[in-house]
């Protein structure tokens, strides 16, 4: 039976499986896991507000949380439009990263020659800092395309690396079994390798989701200094020039929330797809 301990480590079970709810202790543990971070957040916000008021810190140095929130509401039309722009780039980059990463990994898996020829360049693309590549892409490509290309470069590699690992981690006996029954290459890929790689692919997706957002923001910042952007990162840069610090914080808050939502959405997808069979998603009775 193939297990993936490294994967189990990488994906802590943030969503719990069935069979645990009717015990008092795990339920309390679960409550604590949700309530404690919220309590810390609330405490932080209160301390922040008190410090700002007590020392009478001007809003262009550090705005109070209340002001950040009211700015968020007041500037919602501008900020929400920017949020949509950034999220669109993120989503497009993510989809392209998943499609490209998985397709490339499958191609590498099917042909060793292609893998040997191209894999080093995938690594080079990954290890070269994206901030350094972005200005170059902005010269060669249209701005929107350049931003998308940046986000894609950052996000596709974890999908490629994880999928490659997953496709190569198939139980050897199962490979023999498929050979014994005369399975075609296509059947081996579809019925055996891709399902076996699924936990790894989903692990890659979780990383790629966050990185798509990071890539989009980095590219927008680079593009923003060149002029005509309108995403959230551009708003942050623009607010910085205008010393509109509350709006900067509001935009930052939106980016954070977007990142958290992406992470939890992908964790949920991963959990739903693996809960029936994979060790990482199965809660054990102790």
């Amino acid at each position: 039976m193939s297990r993936h301990p490294s994967d189990a480590r990488r994906n802590p079970p943030s969503f719990r499986g069935r069979g645990q709810t009717d015990h008092a202790a795990p339920r309390r543990e679960r409550m604590l896991r949700v309530l404690l971070p919220i309590a810390v957040l609330a405490l932080g916000v209160v301390v922040w507000e008190v410090v700002v008021r007590h020392f009478d810190i001007p809003p262009y140095v550090l705005p109070a949380p209340g002001l950040v929130f009211s700015t968020l509401v007041a500037d919602w039309s501008v900020l929400s439009a920017s949020l949509v722009v950034t999220l669109t780039t993120t989503l497009e980059a993510f989809v392209l990263a998943v499609v490209g990463g998985v397709a490339l990994a499958v191609l590498f898996n099917q042909s060793r020659l292609i893998e040997y020829s191209l894999y080093p360049y995938a690594v080079i693309l990954q290890v070269t800092p994206i901030v350094a590549i972005a200005p170059l892409l902005l010269i060669y490509l249209e701005q929107q395309a350049a931003v998308l290309a940046c986000a894609w470069i950052v996000a596709f590699f974890p999908v490629l690396a994880n999928t490659t690992l997953g496709l190569n981690s198939v139980d050897h006996n199962l490979v023999d079994l498929f050979r014994l029954y005369g399975a075609t290459r296509w059947q081996v890929l579809r019925e055996l390798k891709l399902p076996a790689a699924l936990p790894y692919i989903l692990g890659g997706l979780k990383i790629a989701g966050g990185l798509s957002l990071i890539g989009a923001v980095v590219a927008e910042i680079a593009a923003g200094s060149a002029g005509a952007g309108s995403g959230l990162a551009y708003r942050i840069a623009e607010s910085g020039y205008r010393l509109n610090i509350p709006r900067m914080f509001a935009a930052l808050l939106l980016l954070s929330v977007a990142g958290i939502v992406i992470y939890f959405a992908l964790s949920l997808v991963s959990h739903l797809m693996l809960r029936r069979w994979h060790e990482s998603a199965v809660m054990r009775e102790v």
Binding site: L174, D176, L180, G182, L192, P195, L198, W277, H278
Partner: peptide
């Protein structure tokens, strides 16, 4: 192809 069945030392079932 030959009509044979093979049982491995491990159950070798697809977990998914």
């Amino acid at each position: 192809g030959r009509r044979l069945g093979f049982v491995f030392q491990e159950p070798t079932l697809m977990p998914w």
